[in-house]
């Protein structure tokens, strides 16, 4: 089954059309990369998929496991298995990270009619995943993302992805601003999440990440449209000739 099917998607923000007819599908078990220059609409696409207010779908449709996704609230989407790692994770002073993780995890479970986890279960699960991402215990006791470095914030996003076990994960420039060690850590975190029943959409500006995460398909987004799609080699081609050439050919 197609996990995600986007068909002729048009999205406006504050009356201005940003996405101008995107068609794209991600089958279960595949990892797709979306590449594109700054301002091409990558974050707009990811916010639209996550259900942020103010991103108005004016034409086209988005099906998630066969159902219309656009009518659902962000929290409902999350409970159904859609996860977005933000390009700029938000700082939330006053909410302890571990508390947040427990509240979020249990909210999702409650919405799905599953038994909530107790504090011990949450802690065990968080610890396991945190260790793999080199996230120290102390970070979990601090307010969520408050004063975290860029790399810490991105690792925290991947920790959440590991914890929530989504069916569809969208990673919006999770690689940007990371040094090479942090990049490797994040990439291995993502690779560990690849699974036959899971689809992953990796959004990136740079080819660099794709040295570590090999995609099944690569799509090039420019001016609010997918201008080219291809196999992993497309990323290498982009690196050699730059976006300009690819966009022109299209």
């Amino acid at each position: 089954m197609k996990l995600l099917e986007i068909d002729d998607l048009h999205v406006s923000v504050q009356g201005k059309e940003i996405l101008k007819g995107i068609t794209l599908s991600v089958p279960e078990g595949e990892l797709h990369a979306i590449m594109g220059p700054n301002g091409s609409g990558k974050s707009t696409l990811s916010y639209t998929l996550a259900g942020r207010e103010g991103y108005e779908v004016t034409r086209g449709q988005v099906l998630y496991r066969g159902d219309d996704l656009t009518a659902l609230s962000p929290d409902r989407r999350a409970a159904l298995g859609v996860f977005l790692a933000l390009q700029y994770p938000v700082e939330i002073p006053g909410v302890v990270t571990l508390t947040f993780l427990k509240v979020a995890l249990n909210a999702q479970r409650r919405a799905r009619g599953e038994q909530e986890f107790d504090a011990v279960q949450v802690l065990r699960s968080v610890r396991q995943n945190a260790a793999a991402l080199n996230i120290p215990e102390d970070m979990l006791k601090r307010p969520l993302n408050a004063g975290f470095s860029g790399g810490e914030k991105k690792r925290m996003e991947i920790l959440q992805m590991a914890l929530f076990e989504p069916r569809l994960a969208i990673l919006d420039e999770t690689d940007s601003g990371l040094d090479i060690d942090a990049l490797r850590l994040v990439a291995s975190g993502v690779n560990a999440q690849r699974a036959p029943d899971r689809g992953i959409l990796v959004i990136t500006h740079y080819q660099r990440l794709l040295d570590y995460i090999v995609p099944d398909r690569v799509h090039v987004l420019a001016g609010g449209r997918i201008v080219r799609s291809g196999g992993p080699d497309l990323a290498l081609e982009l690196e050699k000739s730059g976006y300009g050439a690819v966009v022109e050919v299209a």
Binding site: E53, S73, D75, V90, F100
Partner: peptide, 23 residues
């Protein structure tokens, strides 16, 4: 931004607001 962030993690709107106000 904070409200959307919490909601995108599965926390329903009312609960997310309460969490932020308490914080």
């Amino acid at each position: 931004d904070a409200l959307f962030y919490l909601r995108s993690r599965g926390i329903p709107e009312e609960e997310a607001k309460r969490l932020l106000i308490r914080a």
